[in-house]
């Protein structure tokens, strides 16, 4: 410790000598400096200063405010957040992805004994597939942001010149991506189990990102707005339970008020779109309409999540 300290103070003397030497200063950089100590002493002095390196690399003469380093741009920083979040899956998320998928498989096997085919079977397969998205994008993302906020982890991002949208969209995109294997597996196994046509499953290419955006935005907003981390977890769990109950059961047989709740839940439109695509002759305009609702909810919920992130990061 002592020897390290010695090195520091020697270097301090060097740097002071460098800064204090007027010969180093650029010609005509004559200015008045004022230093105020904590004890209230004030002093005025005139002197030229050595040039400093700015964050951008160009020389700064030292007069006026220091130049600001460039902001991180939206897309590159979103890509960096996405990549970092995706890598977390290897450390922390893989067991939970299995849980999400097995939960959906279990529900389908259970319902196989009750449901014969037709609209009900399509609802079960579509509901179970979108449930994987709800589990990961809504529930786990709400927990992640809730914990990050409670532990002060948001400070890391808040003290980097990164747009709020990059952090929220990068994380939401990564969580939506985590769901891809589980959703594909559930949809294929379910279609085989209930003898449904596999031809319409290509629609998952749109269902996963759009339902993912809507649910991840909701999850992020819940996690960032909940006053405590435990509440964020509870909200995420409730949202997932609602997606489970209201998604797997076919809409037509539910009582009125429950149907309204079902209509308010963004996952419903992903379920409806996928269920229609599993028909032997899908009504593609209706599928597109459902996906349009998902997309609109996604835009709104991600915007709310971005606002919530800004609010949470500066107190």
């Amino acid at each position: 410790m002592r020897s390290g300290g010695g090195a520091v103070s020697t270097a301090a003397a060097e740097s002071r000598a460098r800064f204090g030497d007027p010969a180093d200063g650029p010609a005509g950089a004559d200015r008045t400096g004022r230093a105020t100590g904590a004890t209230g002493d004030t002093g005025t002095g005139t002197g030229a200063r050595g040039t400093d390196r700015t964050p951008g690399g160009e020389a700064w003469s030292g007069t006026g405010p220091a130049p600001l380093a460039p902001r991180a741009r939206l897309w590159p920083s979103m890509g960096a957040v996405y990549r970092a979040q995706l890598s977390r899956a290897r450390v922390a998320r893989i067991p939970l992805l299995f849980v999400a998928t097995f939960q959906s498989l279990g529900i389908m096997v259970l319902m196989r004994g009750v449901v014969d085919g037709g609209a009900e079977a399509r609802a079960v397969v579509a509901g179970s597939s979108v449930l994987v998205v709800a589990f990961v994008a809504l529930n786990l993302l709400a927990q992640y942001f809730g914990q990050l906020r409670a532990s002060g982890g948001l400070d890391h991002y808040a003290t980097l010149p990164v747009p709020a949208a990059a952090v929220v969209l990068g994380a939401a995109g990564a969580y939506a991506s985590f769901t891809v294997p589980g959703v594909l597996f559930t949809a294929v196994v379910g279609s085989v189990l209930f003898a449904l046509p596999l031809g319409g499953l290509w629609v998952l290419v749109a269902v996963i990102p759009l339902a993912g955006a809507a649910l991840a935005g909701l999850g992020a907003a819940l996690g960032l707005l909940a006053p405590r981390a435990e509440l964020a977890t509870v909200c995420g769990q409730l949202g997932m339970s609602a997606a489970l109950l209201l998604g797997v059961l076919p809409g037509g047989q539910l009582p009125g008020p429950v149907q309204w709740v079902r209509d308010l839940l963004p996952s419903t439109y992903g379920v409806e779109a996928l269920a229609r695509a599993l028909q032997s002759r899908p009504e593609w305009p209706r599928v597109a309409l459902d996906l349009g609702v998902c997309a609109a909810v996604g835009v709104v919920s991600l915007a709310v999540a971005t606002w919530a992130y800004r609010r949470a990061s500066v107190r």
């Binding site: 964050p55 220091a66 380093a69 914990q147 982890g153 400070d155 890391h156 003290t159 980097l160």
Partner: peptide, 17 residues
């Protein structure tokens, strides 16, 4: 954020990287 680098006491944002 464009002038300084900050090291806080928490590392939760980075723990799994």
């Amino acid at each position: 954020a464009r002038l300084l680098a900050y090291l806080g006491q928490e590392s939760t944002a980075l723990d799994e990287l």
